[in-house]
Computed example of a mutant assay.
Amino acid sequence: MAFFGLRKFPTPVARPLWPFVAASCITYYLVSKLQDIGVRSEAFRNDPRNPYAAQIAKEAHH
């Protein structure tokens, strides 16, 4: 019996999906790093709308 084209267990589902998982992890990491760089940039460091302004100011005093 074939269910969605999968025949018997163990079904190699993860093998064809590894590029998408790897790309997702890399994209998530790079976007988080870019966000951190943007939040800590000189233009937005002292912006009152920045939710990390207090944390950045506290780190700057050390």
Rank of each mutant, 00 (worst) to 15 (best):
F9C: 13
T11W: 07
D36Y: 08
R49K: 12
S24D: 02
I26V: 03
A22G: 03
F20C: 01
P12T: 04
K58V: 00
I26C: 02
Q55D: 12
P51T: 06
P12D: 08
F20R: 01
L30W: 07
P19D: 05
P48N: 09
S24C: 07
Q55Y: 09
Y52A: 03
P19R: 09
P10D: 12
K33S: 13
T11M: 09
N46K: 05
T27N: 09
I37N: 05
H61D: 03
R40Q: 11
A23I: 05
P10C: 12
E59V: 01
S24R: 03
F44W: 15
E42L: 14
M1Y: 13
N50A: 02
P16N: 08
F20N: 00
A43G: 12
A53Q: 14
F9Y: 15
V39I: 04
C25P: 01
P10S: 14
V31I: 00
A14L: 07
A2L: 15
Q55I: 08
A54W: 02
F4W: 04
Y29C: 08
T11E: 06
Q35R: 15
Q35I: 15
A2W: 15
F20H: 02
L6P: 04
A2K: 15
N46T: 03
P16L: 09
G38C: 12
R49F: 08
A53M: 12
P19T: 06
V21F: 06
K58D: 06
G38A: 13
E59N: 02
R40L: 09
A43Y: 09
S24P: 00
R7N: 13
N46P: 01
F44V: 10
Q35W: 14
L6D: 05
F20W: 02
K33W: 14
K58E: 05
K8A: 14
